[in-house]
Amino acid sequence: MDRTLAFISIGAVTLILSGYAMPQWAVFLTTVSLCYGTVVLGMILLVRTGLVSFGHGLYFCLGAYAAGTLKPFFGLSELVFMLIAAILVTTITSFALGFLLRKYRDIFFAMLSLAFSMILYGLLSKSTELGSTDGFNVTAETAFGIALSELEYGRYLIFVITVGTSWLCCTLLHLYLLSNKGKLAEAIRDNELRVEYLGASVNNIIHINYVISAVLAGLGGALMSISIGHIDPEMSYWTTSGEFVFITIMSGSSSVIAPFLGAAVFTSIRSFAYEYSPDTWQLLLGVTMLVIIVFLPEGLWSLFSKIKKKGSP
């Protein structure tokens, strides 16, 4: 049995069991961490491929709006359909944009992604039907057909679904990273020319990885909208994408567990700092980021991997 998979599963079960007894604020923090972590899972896949997106808020926001608009547009408020809508919309969009973006590298990839996310921001913040800059409220009324509002533990069920979805994403991505194709991501970051001269298509792999990362961001966004109950265009603003990049750098890309650790640290710093000194939480984040860039260029996860270096990867 793969140790990482075992760890992920134990973690998921622990969260589900303890979620029942957790205070409201802890459930909230965990939920946000899981949603952000899922987005960052996709970001580390891109980082492994050698790409940093400064516009992944695009898919985070698209996923959330896809889930949220099911009710006003189609009268649907089943949680499962909301997640499926998010997957569909982000897959189609990223598949289309992927044809363009797969030709870009480095700062140009970052900037073109940024442009696309700001286009969505510009559109949403002016669309009065969708609440402009204020956004609108989202409610999932049923999950697997069970009415959530009538259920005593409706919110707990949403939490369980969030944990389950994150667990599934994390597991699948881990398996993908270990597959022949997944391994090629690192090869591309290292030397594209060689990959082509071994007979594999760099553009195809980048395209596939881009779509995967977009779907993960979309799922993160959808889960976020359902758990928080509110969405607004800010989700597509560049500072949101910046936060994802921040967590990605903080986490490091060596393990699929890292994004969740990074996201948990990030959300904790943000919530506690916001609570106790609302004017300095960004300062704290900025300093943390500089410290990590200087002292832990491989991210927080490298702390762990250094300790257990002798063990299996």
């Binding site: 398996l175 270990l178 597959s179 022949n180 194709k181 997944g182 391994k183 090629l184 690192e186 090869a187 290292d190 990959v195 071994l198 007979g199 594999a200």
Partner: peptide, 24 residues
């Protein structure tokens, strides 16, 4: 990557054109 990993990547591309989802 290490020398071995270099060869592993080559093999994984060369021997598995259609079978990308297999565990490396």
């Amino acid at each position: 990557m290490t020398v071995k990993e270099n060869l592993e990547i080559s093999v994984s591309i060369g021997m598995n054109q259609p079978n990308y989802t297999k565990h490396i």
